[in-house]
Simulated assay, not measured.
Amino acid sequence: MPLRREAFLDHVKERGEYDIPEEAERAARVVLALLGAHLADEVRAQLAARLPECFALILLNPLQSAEPLPPERFVRATAAWIEGATGQTANWDVSAVLSTVADTAGKDLMGQILLQLAVGYDLLFGRLQPT
C-alpha cells in the first residue's frame, strides 16, 4: 500500500528541515522527476506503486535526461530546477527526498534501484552500498 502524501511530505520536511510543507513538496517534485529519468520502466513502476499517487505520476513522467547523470550532476540539475537553490541546498533537498524514497522502497527494491544508478548514489539515498 502506498504511503500517504502527507506522511511522505512529513518525512521529507523533517529530513530537509524545511519551514513550510511547500518547500518539501517542491523538492520532492523536482528530485522525483529527475530520478524517474534514470530508472528502467519496471523498477520505476515498482517504486511508483509505493509512492503517493501525485508523486508516482511525476516519477512515471520524468524530465528527459539525455544521459545518465553521475550523482554530482544530479545534484546540480536539481539546483537548476529549484529557484534560489545552491549546490549545498540542492544536495540537502536531494538527500531529504531520496532517503525518504529509500525508506518507502524497502531493501530489495532499493538494491534494484542502486544497480541502475551510477556509483555514489547510495550516499544520496542515505545508504552505503556494500563494496
Rank of each mutant, 00 (worst) to 15 (best):
L3G: 02
L3I: 14
E6N: 07
E6P: 03
F8W: 06
L9I: 08
L9R: 05
L9S: 11
D10Y: 02
D10K: 02
D10M: 12
D10H: 11
K13Y: 06
K13P: 02
E14V: 09
R15A: 01
R15D: 04
E17Q: 14
Y18N: 05
Y18R: 15
Y18W: 08
D19L: 15
D19P: 01
I20C: 05
I20W: 02
P21R: 11
E22N: 07
E22P: 00
E23G: 00
E25Y: 11
A28N: 05
R29W: 07
R29Y: 08
V30A: 03
V31S: 06
V31W: 01
L32W: 02
L32I: 00
A33K: 05
A37N: 07
A40E: 07
A40Q: 04
A40T: 01
E42F: 12
V43C: 09
V43N: 02
A45F: 08
Q46E: 07
Q46T: 15
L47I: 12
L47W: 04
A48S: 06
A48R: 09
A48P: 02
A49L: 13
R50A: 03
R50Y: 14
L51I: 07
P52Q: 05
C54T: 15
C54S: 11
F55D: 08
F55T: 00
L57V: 01
L60K: 06
N61P: 00
N61Q: 13
N61G: 03
S65V: 11
S65H: 02
E67Y: 04
P68I: 09
P68A: 15
P68L: 15
L69Y: 12
P71F: 12
P71W: 07
E72A: 14
E72D: 14
R73P: 04
R73C: 03
R73A: 08
F74Q: 05
V75P: 05
V75I: 15
V75H: 14
R76W: 12
R76V: 10
A77P: 06
A77S: 11
A77Q: 14
A77I: 08
A79F: 03
A80T: 04
A80M: 11
A80F: 01
W81E: 12
W81T: 03
I82S: 02
I82R: 10
E83W: 08
G84N: 14
A85V: 00
G87P: 00
G87F: 09
G87E: 14
Q88T: 13
Q88I: 13
Q88H: 13
N91V: 10
W92K: 12
V94E: 08
V94A: 05
V94D: 01
S95G: 04
S95H: 06
A96Y: 01
A96N: 06
V97F: 14
T100K: 00
T100L: 10
D103K: 13
A105Q: 05
A105W: 01
G106L: 15
G106W: 14
K107D: 11
K107W: 10
D108W: 01
L109P: 01
M110E: 06
M110Y: 10
Q112N: 07
Q112C: 05
I113G: 00
I113N: 03
I113D: 05
A118I: 02
Y121E: 00
L123S: 08
L124I: 15
L124C: 04
L124G: 03
F125S: 10
G126V: 04
G126H: 00
R127L: 11
R127F: 11
L128M: 15
L128R: 15
Q129M: 15
P130G: 13
T131C: 10
T131R: 14
